[in-house]
């Protein structure tokens, strides 16, 4: 037994992560010391970021920005899900539709959807809905393609079993197709969420500077690097938290795939 194995419970947990904690603390301290020697218009350090974070939070600026950003994110993402899942199901079910859409799907699949932002600005303007449209656009395709991929990966034999037991089309959809492709839907939802976050930030950079992206641009042109880092930190934390949640949901959705994954 190693000394580590002899420890139990939280103590063992602490001991296990002690080297990592030490390294990260060391890096932060180094950053602090080195950062203080740099021009504040050019670089910053952890305690300055902490102060900026407190200032942004207490002035209400941060809270408002988070609300603005989440509104755009959730609305655009919700619309992306609402369009991506049913359209993916339809395209997966009807070969002709798939065939008809395939040139367009191919084009959207390989091209960065961000390239359409200038056109969205022309068509939708530079208001709230333009941002929602950008978020919708970037996440819709990830969801759509994953649902479609799920439909094509669903083994034919499941459908045959259902048919042999007299299932009708609606029953097949409810009892076989949807549960069968649930892991793919969940993957699409996770990837779509990651892209929606990108869409949110990019649209706030380009369209009506508000929200967390707006804070970043506002303070970066004023060379207030600590405030920029504060907003970056908030976005990274929110993004990581949302993505971790989505990943957990995805793994739950695929719990019955455990055995299949064993020989993947």
């Amino acid at each position: 037994m190693t000394p580590l194995e002899r420890l139990r419970g939280p103590k063992r947990h602490l001991a296990r992560w002690a080297p990592q904690t030490a390294i990260w603390t060391g890096l932060l301290v180094l950053w602090e010391i080195w950062g203080r020697g740099q021009s504040p218009f050019f670089f910053t350090y952890p305690t300055a970021i902490g102060r900026a974070l407190l200032r942004l939070a207490s002035s209400g600026e941060l809270g408002q920005a988070i609300l603005d950003s989440l509104q755009v994110l959730l609305l655009g993402y919700g619309l992306g899900v609402a369009a991506g899942v049913p359209l993916g199901l339809l395209a997966g079910r009807f070969a002709y539709l798939r065939r008809l859409l395939s040139p367009l799907m191919m084009a959207f699949y390989v091209t960065p959807r961000l390239a359409l932002i200038p056109l969205i600005i022309i068509w939708v303007g530079i208001g709230f809905w333009a941002k929602v449209t950008v978020v919708w656009l970037v996440c819709f395709f990830a969801i759509f393609f994953n649902v479609l991929h799920g439909m094509s990966s669903l083994s034919r034999s499941y459908l045959e079993v259902a048919q042999a037991y007299g299932a009708n089309e609606a029953q097949i959809l409810r009892e076989v197709t949807l549960p069968g492709i649930l892991p793919f839907i969940a993957t699409g939802l996770r990837l779509g969420l990651g892209l929606a976050l990108i869409g949110m930030v990019v649209s706030e950079f380009l369209i009506g500077l508000n929200g967390l992206g707006g804070i970043i641009v506002y303070y970066s042109v004023r060379l207030r690097v600590a405030d920029v880092f504060a907003a970056v930190t908030v976005i990274v934390v929110i993004g990581t938290a949302l993505m971790t949640g989505a990943r957990a949901l995805e793994q739950r959705a695929a719990h019955w795939q455990l055995s299949a994954r064993a020989f993947r």
Binding site: V201, F205, V221, V232, V236
Partner: peptide, 8 residues
């Protein structure tokens, strides 16, 4: 996390 935050 969205990498675009580092652009500015």
């Amino acid at each position: 996390a969205p990498r675009e935050v580092f652009v500015p």
